[in-house]
Design a binder for these strands. Structure first.
Lengths: 257, 257
DNA sequence: CGTCTCCTTGATGATTCTCAATGCGCGTGG
DNA sequence: CCACGCGCATTGAGAATCATCAAGGAGACG
């Protein structure tokens, strides 16, 4: 396996291994697909709402987002899709039309996951991998729910804090954090469209978070200075606490057995 | 089949038949389960977030809601569960913990759907029924997405209009509308917790909708006076337009064949 | 060196929240 | 029967939050 192939599915593998112990055959299945790459520019639409569903994909690098566009130009982002995240795998299989648009929030690289998706349909030779993807889908649902609480019942300040907790958690699963820092390759306007705020107000809130020494933002890089306070303010709880993950359980079993 | 049994699953059957043509055997399967009834008082919690998932159920009468409660008393309702709606059927099967609490928003009657749920697992003798439940789950996801747009990017006035469009649409699927009217058995405080507003402001918005002659509300009954304007204001689109429903397609096929 | 995008800040106004008080219907107990 | 409490809807007043409009600066890029 070439280094480039390894890199392509690195984040996805890391995330899946958090969710379940997966076999060498599972890894080989993913690596095989990881060779076919596709690129999108910023703002490119991968999938249009209420049109056909796009073929299954895994994000190699860059961020995408599920979103809705209103006729008057307002936008609402449902959730971000990060490196290692998949779309169209182990989702409701019989859906006729897409329920959200998907847009490249940064330059994006993905690989086609049609083979993976079909290999996971029951009866499957990869039940552990299927479970890992099921848990990834469960995480996405949990994120969607928490997005509702965020914009429905949290203040702007709490919202921003909550989103940074979520991003830190999710990027951590994919191995994209170093210490308490991570790359934040999106504009404040996109953050605002996710938080249900105006871009100007989002900027003021970020400034406030910096002044309160909760985090630092510069040059597309965030450093979380006070994770505890950030979580307390926003009420963020990890959707899959480290001690409840299938991977962790499996490791514990292996150690004791 | 006794009249009471018929009544118990009436709304569920009506909704499922909208989504797909289902057979006599499918109907019999549901009717068999519809005998076992369970009651909950207003405010009763059917399922607690981050605890075990409750056994599958179908709502016979009354409304429930999926929601999150914050430690300081704030609440956010994710979505309402109406008569004929199900929970725990054809959802992600491997979920360890509940991702939302479920509360009885009114006095509630449900029946246990464990048998239905297990009868639909592949390989199943009821593929059409399984597809109908899959589409019901797809509808719930579409509603969750639209809830994000509603509270993230619509004004209070637009939000309320959008919610009434959604409720009218969904209650229509279950056969719970007469003309443009339907029962609204919940308090304004709950509407507010769904809309992401304070109860006081929700009240003002409802007053405004009445003054604008878009709808009437009295004694727990809503009558939509101007459906077109309500949809235009809020941008509401039916998640399953009548001509895209599986049931309608099936009927057309049957008529032409 | 001009243009563009993005971030930042100020000023002003609209939206929404909170606190507070009132009224209405309904059940409950005296 | 009546007084009372309670939940719910309603309205007013004032304050907090957030949006909009406008302008300027820093950096990328042709």
């Amino acid at each position: 396996m070439t280094p480039s192939r390894l890199q392509s599915c690195n984040h996805a593998l890391r995330k899946l291994q958090f969710f379940n112990k997966i076999s060498a055959a599972d890894i080989a299945l993913i690596r095989k697909s990881a060779t076919i790459a596709q690129r999108f520019n910023v703002g490119a639409i991968l999938q249009y709402e209420s049109e056909d569903i796009v073929s299954p994909k895994v994000i190699v690098s860059g961020w995408a987002c599920r979103l809705h566009m209103l006729p008057d130009g307002r936008r609402q982002i449902y959730c971000f899709l990060l490196p290692g995240d998949s779309l169209g795998i182990r989702e409701a299989p019989n859906t006729a039309v897409a329920r959200s648009s998907i847009m490249a929030a940064t330059p994006l690289r993905v690989f086609d996951a049609r083979e993976i998706e079909s290999a996971l349909r029951p009866p499957t030779a990869h039940p552990e991998l299927a479970l890992a993807f099921d848990r990834a889908a469960e995480l996405e649902l949990a994120i969607i729910y928490s997005q509702i609480v965020r914009i429905g019942r949290l203040s702007a300040y709490e919202r921003a804090a909550h989103l940074f907790c979520e991003l830190s958690y999710r990027l951590g699963l994919a191995g994209l954090t170093n210490g308490s820092g991570f790359a934040l390759p999106i504009t404040q306007a996109m953050l605002a469209d996710s938080l249900g705020l105006s871009a100007v107000h989002a900027n003021r809130i970020l400034t406030q978070l910096r002044r309160d020494k909760l985090l630092e933002i510069e040059n597309g890089h965030v450093c979380i200075k006070d994770s505890n306070t950030l979580c307390d303010i926003s009420g963020f709880r990890p959707p899959f606490p480290a001690d409840s993950a299938g991977g962790a359980e499996a490791l514990a079993e292996a150690a004791s057995g």
